[in-house]
Nucleic acid binder design. Structure first.
Lengths: 223, 223
DNA sequence: TATTTGAGATAGTATTACTATCATATGAAA
DNA sequence: TTTCATATGATAGTAATACTATCTCAAATA
């Protein structure tokens, strides 16, 4: 079975919908490749324009600045994650199993994209790990939050919080635990590769280290 | 009782030691004010030069770029935190109490700096919450890590991990739990102020929300 | 006293992050 | 089929950023 998913991204994020044209779609696809390759700081619209054989001016007609473009990509990712959670939880009633499915989604590398029209999920996942905090750790966070541009992240968090509460209705901090799971999965994956002394990875336990760590703490917190 | 603390910051971080001159000291002090005020992205050496009535060229003689200056500030902070942990743990033998002291240091606003020669700890704390991840979430992380510039963070992590292991020697992930405590305390403090829907704060439980969440979390994991 | 060193002043460059204008192609509406 | 709106590309230009280089002067040091 194969299918594509589309999400309605909040219109406040872009000036012109990149889904509405070929350049727009190319723009987002190549942006993912470039941000992965260069890191967000070194990524520029000039470099992206060159890559898609277009111009800076054209890109600026779609996105106000590179921060917005990153936000667009992350909104897509968060929507996609919420979709995956919903989809994979379908018909699973065991409450522990439901949590495990979520942990799996948060810590496993996504499967390779099979069709060329889709975004590259592996690169996207790496971008989320290394760059996602840069969209909210900015001075203007309150201002940009007014346009509900973080709604997909909040929704994902809310969905995971629900599953947590189903499992243990007495637990008092389902949302905070939910963001902690998400953020910690990013940190520990990043640290275990780049700054392993900040973790407990070793050559023996390196495979799925983050999974094991997070699963261990989640069930200790909830049981 | 009042005293000042000095730390030897890794020489690879700066070109010229800012502690060695008055401009240098002013530079770091004012950088803390400015980064707090503008956020790291909007902070520039030009603005800092103006603020200390010096020139960009002078600042560049001390620091290669603003990333290094932020790293310098964070190294000082991490060293300071490790000092505080060591100091406040002195003569406390109760193992649970020792963990509680650490949690307190991670989640409480620091006390106002009493003397003008010292850095402003409250601003520093806010900078750590909002900007610290930007020093390691960069493409060049492996390269800059070679100079041991993250040693103070790793040492702090190691020290907290020791206290965790004392409390529960069987726990398998003391370092990862340690970084999770540190990073989660930053996230939850930031979210509870700026994106409260990502947490469980409410008007009733807002005071020390992060403290309560993390304490609950830590002892459930370790007991 | 001679010499090194640090700071300030000044200038200059490449790149970034935009904004503006105009011509042309395309596709839909009349 | 013509008309017209709209998107794109080409080009240009600006202010700010992130540097580097050079020279002078003053103060510390040998």
């Amino acid at each position: 079975m194969e299918f594509q998913v589309k999400f309605d991204i909040n219109e406040k994020i872009f000036l012109r919908n990149p889904e509405s044209s070929e350049v727009g779609r190319q723009m987002v696809k190549k942006a993912i490749d470039l941000i992965y390759e260069l890191g967000f700081e070194q990524f520029t619209f000039k470099k992206l324009a060159l890559e898609i054989s277009s111009t800076e001016a054209t890109i600026y007609r779609y996105f106000e600045n590179k921060h917005r473009l990153l936000l667009y990509i992350l909104n897509w990712y968060w929507s996609y994650m919420e979709f995956l959670v919903t989809f994979q939880l379908e018909n699973v009633s065991d409450k522990k199993e439901r949590l495990k499915i979520i942990l799996n989604l948060l810590t496993q590398e996504p499967t390779e994209s099979t069709n060329q029209f889709d975004y590259n999920k592996k690169l996207l996942n790496q971008i989320v790990i290394a760059e996602s905090s840069k969209v909210y750790l900015v001075k203007e966070v309150t201002e940009i939050n007014k346009n509900e541009v973080f709604k997909p992240y909040k929704d994902l968090c809310g969905k995971i919080a629900e599953v947590i509460s189903e499992y243990n209705p007495k637990y008092k901090y389902p949302r905070s635990l939910s963001t902690t799971l998400i953020e910690t999965s990013h940190h520990q994956q990043y640290f275990s590769i780049n700054l392993p002394k900040l973790t407990d990875v070793s050559s023996e336990n390196s495979s799925n280290f983050t999974s094991k760590f997070i699963e261990d703490f989640l069930f200790k917190v909830l049981d």
